[in-house]
Amino acid sequence: MTATEILFWFLSALALFSAIMVLISKNPVHSVLWLIVVFFSISGHYILLNAQFLAIVNLIVYAGAIMVLFLFVIMLMNLNSNNEPQRNSLIKLAGVVAGCLLLTVMVSAVRSAGEISKSQAVMNEGDIGLIQNLGKILFTDYVVPFEISSVLFLSAMVGAVVIAKKE
């Protein structure tokens, strides 16, 4: 077992564990924190896969910006108490069952996809994930969506203003 593999398993386990912890934490703040752990482990994966740019962006955007925003809102609403009303257990059970079924179906679907069974994800090599390469593509092939996503931001901005501003 190489270091990469050990790291892989560790990060995977961490990601899954923290993801589950996001769900079962009673306190929303804990959930946020666990989610940040998930993001960190995913970033770890990115680094394993040599996608440094994304790893950094993930940390900055998600763990940094988005989650802080979440935390901020939670704090703002004073939701850190763990008195969230619970769904009744039947619904919960149904939810878990549905999730598990979905997982089963997806996994079995992927397993029956024969053409990728031999494929490997290349670890620790390749330079497509470097900021230089990605930047080049982003501003050549992907310049149109890049520009267009600005519209998305504008609308989000306008929207947030419209919605959140007190009248």
Binding site: V144, P145, I148, S155
Partner: peptide, 22 residues
Amino acid sequence: LMLFIGIEILSIPLYILTGSDK
């Protein structure tokens, strides 16, 4: 990708319009 962005550009304003009667 354009499908995804298009759908999102379509959707996000709608979320807001839906909630516009605050």
